[in-house]
Design a protein around this nucleic acid. Structure first.
Lengths: 202, 202
DNA sequence: CCTACCGATCGGTAGG
DNA sequence: CCTACCGATCGGTAGG
């Protein structure tokens, strides 16, 4: 949202990405036309090509600029806490506040998986994996109240908890189940997860 | 896979759905052309329209015929076990053997969410939700060794565990993390989940 | 940044 | 008269 670049070109580029993001999330990648993006961004079709050489570059740009992982990694790295429980709670709440309550962002990853066979996601994971795994390795070594869990599985299940929550959130959205579901479901997910990885306290 | 209809028309219809499923999973819905589907199915483009009136009808047909939920619901309903742990393990292993080890099937749901805004998925959940929720309500009432968890959250987190596993599986697939990850990760996920929902035994 | 277009390919349908 | 399917082409739109 914030920009260092106050140039007109930079602003137009951002407008194109914002417009495209809205449309991609709503209709998917291939179902969104360059003309729609141009209209939404408030310029002519040809004008887009002054900023992006093709459609996929707009998507890549969005992945780079808008993808949550840029905020996710620092949030986890910054998480602290005396106990493993405090650490996980800290990391989880930091992530949720970064990702927001809307599950829309997760659609970006789905588009990625379906339309590009996870090409960008794979690159992303190669970049953040080596930074993230040591955090969980340290957690396993230092925190005595953790059950014995493989660090990679600990990391994977922690990330997986968010997918578990957000994907089911998407499915429940327009169904009667939404009324039955408690409002604080995410906290309950974290609670179940914590019981899953911590030693019983008694 | 099995058909009652041995008619030629029924077989061709199946061949079209099989071909489309492969292509949809590989390239997505909009990136797959009717011509590709025709080629893959071994007939001419025009021939498709004797069996489906348009492209979306092919997708709907696949959802109806090939969607895992048709097998998922019976698998969960058939799960048994003396304790909650036995029940969850039974249901989990039944599901995994039904879904197979390939995470591909999950892409069908992602295409659904992205290209059709979860239109079919919502209908599906309205159908199976009322059948599935009572299973978890009964589980909460009967099994004493369960922690106090809202039935809807119990159901959601159980389903979510599969998304957690399969989505992360998709992301890890082509990265170095695949080597670090234990082979029996799914069992470890179930293990964490069970510790999450069960009372400590000591 | 726009207007005007291109090669090609899209989903869908014609008559036979 | 039906089914299943063909070669050819329809009106529009894709990315560029």
């Amino acid at each position: 949202m914030k920009e260092e670049t106050i140039t007109k070109g930079g602003r137009t580029r951002q407008a194109i990405e914002d417009a495209a993001l809205i449309l991609f999330l709503e209709h998917g990648y291939h179902a969104t036309s360059m003309r729609q993006i141009a209209d939404q961004a408030g310029l002519a079709l040809g004008g887009i090509y002054n900023h992006f050489s093709n459609k996929e570059e707009i998507f890549s740009g969005i992945i780079m600029d808008k993808h949550p992982y840029k905020r996710v990694l620092p949030a986890i790295l910054a998480a602290e806490g005396e106990t493993a429980e405090d650490f996980i709670r800290s990391a989880a709440s930091a992530l949720v506040s970064e990702l927001g309550n809307q599950p829309d962002f997760i659609k970006l990853m789905f588009i990625e998986i379906i339309e590009f066979n996870g090409k960008h996601a794979s690159l992303m994971l190669r970049e953040i994996g080596p930074k993230l795994l040591p955090v969980f390795e340290r957690l396993v070594k230092v925190r005595k109240n953790l059950r014995k869990i493989h660090p990679a599985v600990l990391m994977r299940s922690f990330i997986g908890m968010f997918f578990s929550f957000y994907v089911t959130e998407l499915f429940i959205a327009d169904t009667p189940l939404k009324k039955v579901m408690p409002k604080d479901s995410f906290d309950l997910f974290v609670d179940i997860y914590l019981h899953g990885i911590l030693k019983p306290e008694e």
